[in-house]
Computed example of a mutant assay.
Amino acid sequence: MTQLVEKQAAQIEKQTLQIEKLEKRVNELERQLGQNSNNSSKPPSSDGLRKPTNLRQSGGKKGAPKGHDGHTLRLSPSPLILFIACPIACLITVEAWVFIPSLEMIFTLG
């Protein structure tokens, strides 16, 4: 009976040492897993495909402040030059357009 108890005590001691060794290994691997380029000397390319968290806070309204007078570009009531832009294919039908004699027509080929 005492031999059995001694054998079991030796086995428990061996298992305890194995558990301690494995716990140290798990702790080391968890520490390595927590490393990235921000908290170690690793390059950013080793961080993997996970997107970095954005540290900037969104906020603030966009655009001009309240009460600001806007400026809008108005159309001229009597333009001096009329620009007509059309692809080359539409120039075939130019004869069908109605020309206004008082305006100079300039064609830009696109």
Results as ranks from 00 to 15, higher is better:
Q8S: 15
R50F: 07
P101R: 06
A96G: 09
S58L: 10
S58T: 13
K14Y: 12
Q57G: 07
E6S: 08
G67L: 02
R50Q: 15
P52K: 13
G59C: 01
E23R: 00
M1T: 11
S102G: 12
T72Q: 12
P77W: 08
I84Q: 14
M105W: 12
T16V: 06
S37R: 03
S102K: 14
L109N: 07
L17N: 05
P65I: 02
F99C: 10
E104N: 15
T16F: 01
K42W: 04
N36M: 07
A9F: 05
E23Q: 03
V94W: 09
M1V: 10
C90R: 13
R50G: 10
I19K: 03
S45P: 08
Q11M: 06
H71M: 13
A85H: 10
G60T: 01
D47H: 04
C86P: 00
N39W: 05
N39K: 06
S58F: 07
G67R: 02
G48W: 04
L73S: 07
T53Y: 01
S102C: 10
L29W: 07
K24G: 02
K62Y: 10
R56F: 05
Q11N: 03
T53R: 01
S41D: 10
L29I: 05
P65A: 05
L80R: 15
M105D: 11
L103I: 09
S46R: 09
P44D: 05
R25P: 02
A9Y: 07
A85V: 09
N38F: 13
P65H: 05
E20Q: 07
N39V: 06
L82C: 13
R25Q: 08
P77K: 12
S41A: 13
P87I: 04
L109W: 08
L49K: 15
C86W: 00
Q18T: 06
K62H: 11
Q18E: 14
L73C: 01
G60M: 02
Q35G: 04
S102Y: 12
P101M: 07
K24Y: 03
K14F: 08
E104T: 14
N36Q: 08
K66E: 04
R74G: 02
L4E: 10
L17R: 11
L73W: 06
L22G: 02
Q57P: 02
E28S: 06
A10R: 14
C90D: 11
K21A: 00
A85R: 15
T53F: 00
E28Q: 03
I84V: 15
L29H: 08
V94A: 10
T2Y: 01
E6P: 03
L103G: 01
I106F: 00
R50C: 09
E104I: 09
T93F: 08
K21D: 00
L75W: 14
P43H: 08
K51H: 12
L75T: 13
Q32W: 04
F107N: 01
L29P: 05
N54E: 12
P79K: 08
V98S: 14
M1C: 10
R56M: 09
L22E: 07
L73F: 04
Q18G: 03
G67I: 00
P43R: 04
A10W: 06
K24W: 04
T16Q: 06
K62E: 09
I92G: 08
I84F: 08
D47L: 01
P79Q: 03
L4W: 04
V5L: 15
L4M: 11
S40D: 02
A89V: 12
N27K: 06
N27D: 09
S76D: 13
F83I: 10
G63E: 10
N38M: 15
L73I: 01
V98L: 09
G34C: 11
T16W: 00
